[in-house]
Amino acid sequence: MKFQLAINLERMTPSVDMKEVRDHTLEMVKMADAAGFEIAWAAEHHAMEMTIAPNPFQILTWWGEHAKNIRLGVGVVNAAYWHPIDLAGEAAFLDLTSDGRLEFGIGSGAYQREFDRMKPGLDQRDSWRYMQEMLPVVQKLWEGDYEHNGEFWQFPSATSCPKPVQKDVPVWVAARAPITFDYAVEHGCNIMSWPLTMPFSEAETYRARLDDAIAKNGGKYDGRWALMRHTAIYDNEVDRKAAMDAIRVQLSQFGNLMMKSGEVINGFPEQVPLDSLEGNARVDPEMLEQNLMFGSPGQVVEKLKMYEGIGVDGFIYYASMGMDMDQQKRSLKLFIDQVLPEFSEKELVNAG
């Protein structure tokens, strides 16, 4: 199993210095790079301080200049917000400047609130149609001149400038629904899944959907499957409590965004008071600690072995969860020092 890092430029309150967030994010990526993590993922979101990512290609170009080995993952671009020629060129330019380290991720978005501003009139539940039209168009533009007359985009003959350095750019599709698993397998795409705060059984459900999609495709699939979880490693009660408090606050904001149940003021989603969330399964501490990649190094090793056991090829360590920046570094260091060796040693044995 390979290990990957997903991290956002994240401000939970106006008192947090944006330059400190910038520097912290890069330091985390450099730590992952030095430890041999495979991919660093940057998202695309708009008008939200908790996920500052207006253009993942800018973020990844910046990271790539300072972290020289780790691959650079777009995790993920929202197809509905882009024009194919623009997207193809931006992605190819990142591949050029990073000497072929692009991992191209594409998806259908998450927040209806964001669609209401970026693509008014589009229901998030229908955005998969944009993704499925966009991806093959981008790939054809990478090959050379191509004319397109589709449902959502039409343009005369054009090409991507520049072209990618890689002959075959790895493509990732964000998938939870069966229809997206089917599409990814049929088109030979890698798959990334995020069970949110659901239990391990949700990952098993995704595995079953992947297996069903492979069966429909005649048993053929040579792609990879990565799974993302919020991650916090701790070795003391103070850090454990701080991690739990942080994720509960972030989830209350996330729920507001998903359900459009609160205001967003100057980029900051309203927080539901924590005392009003007691008993709510979404933020129940015991459930969160069990379901997420939370725990001591030993507990996390055992959880990761469960994911490895169902065929997860890559684990995405999701670092952004409102936790104090110093604690984020302590967590990642514990993961690197005490969790990673349990898997890298096994890989060396298998390779031998």
Rank of each mutant, 00 (worst) to 15 (best):
D116S: 11
N8A: 06
V272K: 11
R129T: 08
E49M: 15
E151P: 03
K333S: 11
G105A: 14
V29E: 03
M306R: 15
Y146A: 00
Q124T: 11
E65S: 09
W82D: 07
S320A: 13
T159C: 10
A242H: 09
M50W: 09
L135E: 05
C161K: 01
I7K: 09
K19G: 11
G144R: 07
A203C: 14
I233M: 04
R101C: 12
F335K: 05
E103T: 14
M323I: 15
K19Y: 13
A281R: 15
F152P: 07
V185E: 03
I214Y: 12
M50S: 10
M259Q: 14
M12V: 14
W225V: 02
A208Y: 11
G218P: 11
D23S: 01
A34I: 04
E133V: 03
A80V: 13
L288P: 03
S201K: 07
T25R: 00
E345N: 12
F294I: 11
D168C: 04
D86Q: 14
Q250E: 13
R207P: 00
E278W: 10
I247T: 14
G121L: 13
D326V: 11
E143N: 09
G262L: 01
T205P: 07
S261H: 04
D23I: 07
Q58M: 06
Y206H: 12
A32N: 05
P285K: 14
A88P: 05
T97G: 02
W128C: 05
F104H: 09
C189D: 10
L96W: 05
G109K: 03
P156R: 01
G75N: 12
L257D: 01
D313M: 04
G262V: 08
L141C: 01
A6W: 14
L72M: 03
V300F: 07
E186R: 15
Q132P: 01
R224C: 13
I59P: 05
W194V: 10
E186G: 09
M244E: 10
D116K: 05
I179C: 09
R71W: 07
I85D: 04
L9I: 10
S201I: 02
E347P: 05
R207I: 00
A351G: 01
V169D: 00
A80I: 12
Y183T: 03
T61L: 13
G109Q: 10
L87V: 11
F181C: 05
A32T: 06
T231M: 13
S201F: 07
V29M: 08
G73N: 07
E114H: 10
S320L: 09
K303N: 00
F335V: 02
L348V: 03
M31N: 05
L304D: 05
E90K: 13
L304K: 02
R125Y: 00
L196R: 14
F37K: 13
A243L: 08
F104V: 06
K333P: 05
A91F: 01
G188I: 06
P120D: 13
E147D: 08
I310A: 08
D23W: 04
A92C: 10
L102A: 01
F155G: 00
K163Q: 12
M198N: 15
G144A: 04
K119P: 00
A208H: 15
K167H: 15
P199Q: 13
M306V: 08
P156N: 03
E65N: 07
L257H: 07
K241Q: 15
N55D: 15
A184K: 00
A6K: 07
R117Q: 14
H187W: 09
K30H: 02
F315R: 02
G188V: 08
V138H: 00
D245G: 11
L227R: 03
K216Y: 06
F155C: 03
